[in-house]
């Protein structure tokens, strides 16, 4: 019970870029600045899958990532949540025109809990999505088993 309560208030996120244009990645990096200050909401940003609670996935799933992303997902300890960010991750965006290069959407490869549309979405929208959808997903884990 306590564990669930605490877990909702300290979310470690890991950013995985799977081949977009970097636009979404720098918007996630912008969240670190004092103006948005992710850490005051209890979100800690680092790129280590084995310690994280939530994966932020950006980009069209490029060829190299199509198997690796699943491996990656499996490395994240349960309970976990996945947030897909940007048009690329949701549909392939502008790169979907000749579809042999990209494996988007991300939801075809791994289960996705929240989607943030936009090319790129604003940093505040990303923060809202993480705050609103990740804690319930983490909390619902015990109820599942």
């Amino acid at each position: 019970m306590i564990k669930e309560f605490i877990r909702k208030r300290s979310i470690h996120v890991c950013l995985v870029c799977t081949g977009g244009c970097n636009g979404c990645d720098i918007e996630v990096a912008a969240l670190l600045s004092q103006r948005y200050d992710l850490e005051q909401y209890g979100i800690y940003y680092h790129n280590n899958p084995r310690e994280s609670d939530a994966l932020l996935v950006t980009g069209t799933v490029a060829k190299q990532w199509q198997e690796k992303l699943v491996e990656f997902y499996n490395k994240v300890p349960e309970p976990k949540a996945v947030v897909a960010i940007g048009a690329c991750a949701l549909s392939g965006g502008i790169f979907q025109q000749e579809s042999d290069k990209v494996g988007a959407p991300v939801s075809d490869v791994i289960p996705v809990d929240a989607e943030v549309p936009g090319c790129p979405p604003r940093p505040a929208e990303i923060a809202i999505a993480v705050l609103k959808y990740v804690p319930p997903t983490l909390a619902s884990y015990r109820r599942k088993i």
């Binding site: 870029c17 980009g59 490029a62 190299q64 990532w65 790169f95 000749e98 290069k101």
Partner: peptide, 11 residues
């Protein structure tokens, strides 16, 4: 490299 390839030139 190779984790970012989208084929922009080809598109």
């Amino acid at each position: 490299l190779g984790y970012f390839y989208r084929g922009a030139e080809q598109l």
